[in-house]
Nucleic acid binder design. Structure first.
Length: 426
DNA sequence: AACTAGGCT
DNA sequence: GTATAAGCCTAGTTG
C-alpha cells in the first residue's frame, strides 16, 4: 500500500497508485511526441506584425528622444534612469530601487505615468520592443518545412512543473494590445482544429483539499464564483452585493494566499494602503481557518523535515530554513506553502497528459498526420490538434479525461474551446 | 556573466 | 533596518 494513497484518502482524494517518479517516466515519451509534432504558425502574419510594430517603434523612438531633448538608448535602463530622474527630474519618491539606482520597471513608471508625457511612450516602446525581439523576429526563423515550431520540454524543475525552451512555447503573449494577434498566429493545420482545455482554478481546488478548508470546499462543491464568494467574506457582505472592484481585490487575495503573500505584497499588487491589505488577509484567515492551519503546518513541517512534498511525493528541500538571514528563511517558508500546491497541480496535469495520450493513440489509430494529438502543455492548459470532423468528440474526450484523472475532494472543472487558431480556442 | 526588464501560468 | 508573491525563459545592455 502506497503511503501517498493513504494520505490522499485522509483528504478525501482518490489518486492512482503511482508516485511522482513514475509519473515523470510516463510523461516523458508523451513530451517527446509533442516536441516532434510541433505547432504551426502563420509566418505571414508574424512578418506583417513585425513590420507594423517596427514602424511604430521608430516613431516612438523619435518622440521619446525629442521629449528627452537628446538621443539615447531607450533599451538601456541606466540611460533611461538618467534621463527620467536626473535630467527631467521626475519624482523618485515611492519608487523602488534596483541595485544601481532607481528602477525604471513598468510597475514603477506607472506610478508616475501622468507626471510626464514621456512615460506612456516609454511603456508602449517597451511593450512593442519585447514583442518584436522575443517573439515576432525569432520564432519564424525556427519553423520547419511545414511552418511548425518545435519546442523542448523539460521536467527538471523544482516544483514538478514542465518547462519549455528553445523556443519557450509557455509564454506566448495573450494580453495587451497585440497579445491576441500573436497568439492568433498559432494555427491549426488545414482540415484540423485546435482544442484548448484548461483546468479551472486547479491550484485553489488543490489547496482547498490539502488544507481541508471547509468554507472553500463548500464553495467549490456548490459551483459558486469563488472570487465573489471570497469578496463577500472579506468585506462582510452578501454575495449579490459584491462590486466588480471588490471581486478584483478578492481575486488577488486568493491568488496571493498560495504564495504566502504578505500585507505589503498585497498592497503593492492592488495599489492600496498596507493596513487595508492587512485587514483583507486577516479577514480571510479568520474565515478560512483550514487555509490558515495549512500555511502554518507547512512552515512547521518544512522546519522539522528540511523539506516538503507534493501529493505524489515530489520532494523540495528547503536549506534556507536554517539560514540566519531572515528574508532567506521567509523565502523558503513561502516555498514550503506554495510547492505542494503548485507541484500537486502539475502532477495532476502530467497524469492527464499520460492518460490522454493513451486514449487518443488507442482510439484513433489512423496512420497519418491527420490524427488527434497533443501539441502543447502550459501548466494548467493542454492544446490538442484534431481533424475538423472529429474535433467535437475529441474535445469531449479531452475534457472527460482531464476532469477524472484524479478525484479531488471538490469537483475538477475543465474549460474547453476550439478554433482555427490558439486565440479562437480560448 | 550580472543586471534589468518583461512575456506566460 | 531590510525586504516583502510561486515557477519558468529570453533579450538587451554593461563591463
Amino acid at each position: 500500500m502506497n503511503e501517498f494513497i493513504k494520505k490522499a484518502e485522509g483528504l478525501g482524494i482518490k489518486i492512482p497508485r503511482i508516485t511522482a517518479d513514475k509519473i515523470n517516466n510516463a510523461v516523458k515519451p508523451v513530451l517527446r511526441k509533442m516536441e516532434k509534432a510541433g505547432i504551426r504558425i502563420d509566418v505571414a502574419v508574424f512578418k506583417k506584425l513585425e513590420n507594423a510594430l517596427s514602424n511604430d517603434l521608430e516613431i516612438l523612438t523619435k518622440k521619446i528622444h525629442k521629449l528627452a531633448g537628446h538621443d539615447f538608448n531607450i533599451s538601456s535602463p541606466s540611460q533611461m534612469a538618467v534621463v527620467l530622474f536626473e535630467e527631467l527630474k521626475l519624482q523618485t519618491e515611492g519608487l523602488k530601487k534596483s541595485q544601481s539606482g532607481f528602477s525604471t520597471a513598468a510597475n514603477e513608471l506607472k506610478k508616475i505615468e501622468d507626471k510626464h508625457k514621456i512615460i506612456p511612450l516609454i511603456l508602449e516602446y517597451r511593450e512593442i520592443s519585447k514583442l518584436i525581439s522575443t517573439y515576432l523576429k525569432p520564432l519564424p526563423l525556427l519553423v520547419d518545412e511545414n511552418s511548425r515550431l518545435h519546442t523542448t520540454y523539460g521536467l527538471e524543475t523544482s516544483t514538478g512543473r514542465i518547462n519549455s525552451n528553445e523556443p519557450n512555447l509557455q509564454n506566448i503573449p495573450i494580453r495587451g494590445k497585440y497579445g491576441e494577434k500573436i497568439r492568433g498566429a498559432f494555427v491549426a493545420e488545414k482540415g484540423m482544429k485546435l482544442i484548448s482545455a484548461d483546468y479551472s482554478q486547479i491550484e485553489l481546488r488543490v489547496v482547498a483539499c490539502l488544507a481541508q478548508d471547509e468554507t472553500m470546499i463548500r464553495s467549490f462543491k456548490n459551483g459558486e464564483d469563488i472570487h465573489a464568494q471570497t469578496a463577500a467574506e472579506i468585506f462582510g457582505i452578501k454575495m449579490n452585493e459584491v462590486t466588480p472592484d471588490q471581486r478584483r481585490k478578492a481575486k488577488a487575495v486568493n491568488f496571493g494566499i498560495v504564495y504566502g503573500q504578505t500585507p505589503y505584497g498585497l498592497s503593492q499588487a492592488l495599489s492600496i494602503p498596507i493596513d487595508e491589505a492587512a485587514l483583507y488577509i486577516k479577514n480571510y484567515f479568520s474565515i478560512h481557518t483550514g487555509i490558515a492551519k495549512y500555511v502554518n503546518s507547512m512552515i512547521d513541517l518544512g522546519h522539522e523535515q528540511g523539506y516538503v512534498e507534493t501529493l505524489f511525493g515530489t520532494r523540495r528541500h528547503l536549506p534556507n530554513l536554517k539560514s540566519h538571514i531572515r528574508f532567506m528563511v521567509e523565502a523558503d517558508e513561502r516555498i514550503a506553502i506554495n510547492t505542494p500546491v503548485q507541484g500537486t497541480a502539475a502532477e495532476i496535469l502530467k497524469l492527464a497528459m499520460v492518460e490522454l495520450d493513451k486514449v487518443l493513440s488507442t482510439q484513433y489509430t489512423v496512420r497519418s498526420d491527420r490524427k488527434p494529438q497533443l501539441l502543447l502543455t502550459v501548466h494548467d492548459e493542454l492544446v490538442v490538434e484534431a481533424p475538423v470532423k472529429q474535433a467535437k468528440e475529441v474535445a469531449e474526450l479531452v475534457q472527460e479525461t482531464m476532469e477524472n484523472v484524479v478525484t479531488l475532494c471538490v469537483p475538477i472543472e475543465v474549460n474547453i474551446s476550439m478554433g482555427n487558431n490558439w486565440a479562437e480556442a480560448k
